[in-house]
Amino acid sequence: MRDKQIFQDAYFTVLVDEQIGIVRTIRSSTPFASLEELDGVFARLGDALDALGRSRYGLLADLRAGPGRNDPQFEAAMERLRPRWTGGFRRVGVLVRSTVGLLQIQRHARSDGFERMISKHEDELLTYLTRDV
């Protein structure tokens, strides 16, 4: 296995594959206990990603296990916090489980205003993230 784990908490595991230049953030199935908790979770995740030097890597955000949630308060918090998670990478790919998840992430991409590939197929995302490396 080429992946090296650099971070883990109840919500995310972060793996780095130096050989192909990919960082994976893998969302667990644990629901966030409260909206107040999100700032700390994303601060710790962001700090771990910052330590890598984001621009050297493609980011594969694996959301397949994450519990679906789209209430307005959560959506607003995530709009504010997503850049701390996904900003600064060479490319971003988002791996989803369902068509509903794909549509939700497409909506986020339009709102955030930066390009990312969204797919239910990991191989497709890896090809995108490693192209021109």
Rank of each mutant, 00 (worst) to 15 (best):
I26H: 04
G113P: 09
E18V: 00
R54V: 09
L102D: 08
T99M: 13
L126E: 14
V94F: 02
A76Y: 02
R27I: 02
V14Q: 09
V41Q: 03
R97D: 14
P72W: 01
I20F: 01
R97I: 01
R80N: 05
G68R: 00
G58K: 12
A76V: 02
I105E: 15
L60Y: 07
Y128T: 09
A10P: 02
M78Y: 08
A10R: 13
D71G: 04
D39V: 12
S119T: 05
E124I: 10
A77V: 14
R24Q: 02
R27L: 06
L60A: 12
V94L: 08
T13Y: 03
F42R: 02
L129Y: 00
G40T: 06
E75P: 00
V96N: 06
P83F: 02
D71C: 02
F32V: 12
R110P: 01
I105S: 10
A33R: 15
Q104D: 10
F74D: 00
V100C: 02
S29M: 05
I20P: 02
T127A: 15
Y11S: 03
R64E: 05
G66R: 08
L15A: 09
E36N: 13
R82F: 15
R24C: 00
M117L: 15
K120S: 14
E36Q: 13
T13C: 10
L59K: 15
Q106T: 10
E124M: 11
R54D: 09
S98F: 05
E79K: 04
L95E: 07
N70H: 06
P31R: 05
T30V: 14
T127V: 13
